[in-house]
Simulated scan of single mutants.
Amino acid sequence: MPAERIGQLLDLAAAHRADLAVFPEGYPFIVSSEEAVPPRLEQAKADLEALPAHPVACILGGYVMERDTPRNASFLIHQGHLHEPYFKRVRWQDEQFEPGTALLRWRWNDHQVIPLICADVCVPWNEPDGRTAQMLGEAIALGAGPACPIIVSTFGADLRTSYWTAPLRAWARACNAPVLVAAIAGASCRQFDEGDGERAYGGGGSGMYWVEGGRDRVWPKAADSVDPAMYVLDTDHPQSLRVPLDALAHA
């Protein structure tokens, strides 16, 4: 568990008055190879609860084992309190895990968010089967809206192309909610097959998607969203601040 680095990043977020820090899908419980064994769910919870209590809430997660079943999970932790985990609902390609069965809403202080993981928000990539309408309905029933953003952790690629932006904007429009996406800045050396070609994992594109006054709003701009950095996003106004991580590079 990279507790020291997580603490450094939360301190940096606090210095910029952030309420929530969101880490990309798989951090810190990344599974780097098919032979790697994810941590047990209870051990993952214990590791997160052992982090020093911090005033900035954060979303972390990755692959865990619930008894003998692999799951892809997100956790919210704030001031040492670990909330109920969210389990990814939608498999991507041949991803192997047991899907979750329901969305949930996390609340802390005066804040609330609805978490999703990667392909959850992009069910339209798959054959239509009613899941998009079902999950949108769940999100709306849980209170998704201007004061309850939807948070998407991902390890995906091409986040600023229509491959992603079409479903992201569909969620933002349907729920009248900001949709925040936290992704991997760098592109992987390892590639995967999709369609007629090969693509890399990651590649940046983190940002906030919203429809305001009938107009799509996306910030930061695509050219400003791909460098390794912390992006401080404001859900009240279409603006952002890019905070370089140079100061932490050798910490």
Results as ranks from 00 to 15, higher is better:
Ala57Met: 11
Ala13Pro: 03
Asp158Phe: 03
Gly100Trp: 13
Ala44Glu: 13
Val37Ile: 14
Tyr201Val: 06
Trp164Ala: 10
Glu198Leu: 09
Ser206His: 00
Pro38Cys: 08
Lys221Pro: 11
Ile114Tyr: 07
Asn109Trp: 08
Val152Pro: 01
Val179Met: 08
Ala57Tyr: 03
Cys175Ser: 15
Pro28Glu: 08
Ala182Asn: 05
Thr235Asp: 00
Phe155Asp: 08
Pro52Lys: 13
Asp246Phe: 03
Gly214Thr: 10
Gly205Cys: 03
Ala157Gln: 06
Ala13Cys: 06
Ala46Lys: 15
His250Asn: 14
Val56Ser: 08
Trp219Tyr: 15
Glu35Ile: 08
Gly214Asp: 12
Leu10Met: 03
Gln96Lys: 12
Gly195Asn: 05
Asn126Tyr: 10
Gly186Lys: 09
Glu84Gly: 03
Ala57Gln: 00
His250Pro: 02
Arg71Tyr: 10
Gly143His: 04
Arg173Tyr: 13
Val152Ile: 14
Glu138Thr: 04
Ala157Pro: 01
Gly213Phe: 09
Ala247Lys: 07
Pro28Gly: 08
Glu84Arg: 15
Leu60Gly: 02
Trp92Arg: 09
Gly156Glu: 10
Gly214Cys: 09
Arg217Tyr: 11
Gly203Gln: 01
Arg217Lys: 14
Gln134Tyr: 12
Pro128Cys: 09
Gly80Pro: 12
Ser206Lys: 00
Pro85Lys: 12
Trp106Ile: 06
Ala170Ser: 14
Asn72Ala: 13
Arg91Tyr: 07
Ser188Phe: 06
Met135Leu: 15
Pro178Arg: 02
Ala182Ile: 05
Ala53Ser: 15
Arg105Pro: 08
Gly80Val: 11
Gly195Val: 07
Ala50Trp: 15
Gly195Gln: 02
Val121Thr: 11
Pro220His: 10
Arg67Val: 15
Arg71Gln: 14
Gln239Asp: 09
Asp236Glu: 13
Ala141Thr: 13
Thr165Gly: 04
